[in-house]
Simulated scan of single mutants.
Amino acid sequence: MLHRIARATTAAGLMVSLLTSFSARAIASEPPAHCRDIAIPVSIAQGQPARYRVWGQLCTPEHRPAATVQVLVSGLNYSHLYWDFPFRSSQYSYVRQANRAGYGTFNLDRIGIGRSSHPASAEVTLESNAYTIHQVVAALRGGAIAGRAFGTVMLVGHSYGSEIAKLEASAYRDVDALVLTGNAHTVSVSAQQNLAQLGQPVGQVPRLAAEVPPGDNGYATVQDAQRPEFMYNVADADPRVIALDIATKETNTLGELSTIGDADAPGVTALLRLPILIADGADDKLACAPDATDCSSAATLAAAEQPFYPHSPVDAVVIPRAGHAINLHRNAEMAYCTIINWANRALGTPPPSK
């Protein structure tokens, strides 16, 4: 275990090399990606018919094949836009960075979110999220998406999406690596209690109310005014990004909230046997608060998390000045390059030629 924890001490040097390897000049020379919208038929529980759809966008490098695809899973109240933010995409789009590094991405709206189907809210749980992602992974591996099969699949989650990724990988053992962002086993109790008071019925947001089943009061969202307080280190975020984030907020369900801890049940993560990267913002008010996990360094974060993954090598990185939504801070590129370089190392993927 000690040698696994020690891996995190390389993160600071790794971050410097990342920014060199994926310099703005090298990225600008990369060809654009080819993207297509795809709706995948899914069921929300084993034995049920595939009555629903998960929408996603598959993007692959334009002029070279991608053997590995990253499935991107957003958190509560976020859609696929978290990974491909519609503002200054050269700075805030993880999709664009990953494609330029040679990876395919499948950036999806989770079940119950955005362009995907909205079942009854009670059926949208951590378990049904994990099961639908499992079907997405199977489609990517089997060639059912865009007529091509990917030999390597990794899950990249944010916050609740990281919980989904952990449960999916543990239950179905069908992916090769996990990236868990905005995530830790010990989270701030005080922040959780405050967040619990900030829900907003979707009926008060006409755009969201039009998406959900009529009369289903189990869909909710978060109040606009409180979103920056918990998602950001406001001092390190562009006010225009925060405003657009609020304007494009999505939903959560009571079913998701009631099952939020199921991926951390005893023995679940102990089943995992794959490389894991945990990436948190130093100013994350949920994962890295004084009453949460010690994120004072990559080493302390890895040391805190490694015992929960006894059969998996755990690396960690702490993004300075970033809050919970690390993709939406001014230094988002630092997080993106860290994840990409780690994936190269963990999966043996060569970086793009310059």
Rank of each mutant, 00 (worst) to 15 (best):
S93C: 05
G104W: 00
Q204K: 11
V189Q: 14
A130N: 06
S170D: 10
G199E: 11
T125C: 07
Y172H: 14
A171G: 08
Q91S: 13
H185L: 07
Q193W: 00
N183F: 15
H158K: 03
Y131C: 05
S159P: 01
F150I: 01
A196H: 08
I133P: 02
G142D: 13
R207K: 13
F85N: 06
E163Q: 15
A165K: 04
L208F: 04
K166A: 13
V175L: 08
Y92T: 03
A122R: 11
R173N: 13
S170G: 14
R141K: 15
S159Q: 07
Q197I: 00
Y131K: 03
Q97E: 12
R173C: 05
L178I: 03
S190Y: 05
A171D: 14
V202Q: 08
L108P: 01
P201R: 10
A196G: 14
Q192P: 00
G143A: 14
R141I: 00
A184M: 04
S89R: 14
G199C: 03
Y131N: 05
L195D: 12
G147H: 11
L167P: 02
S190M: 09
A122N: 05
M154P: 00
Q197N: 11
Q204M: 11
F87G: 03
G104H: 03
S117F: 07
A169K: 09
F150L: 04
G157Q: 09
S121H: 06
L178G: 10
G161D: 11
A98D: 07
R100P: 00
P86S: 12
A139E: 10
V124P: 04
T181Y: 05
G143F: 06
L126K: 08
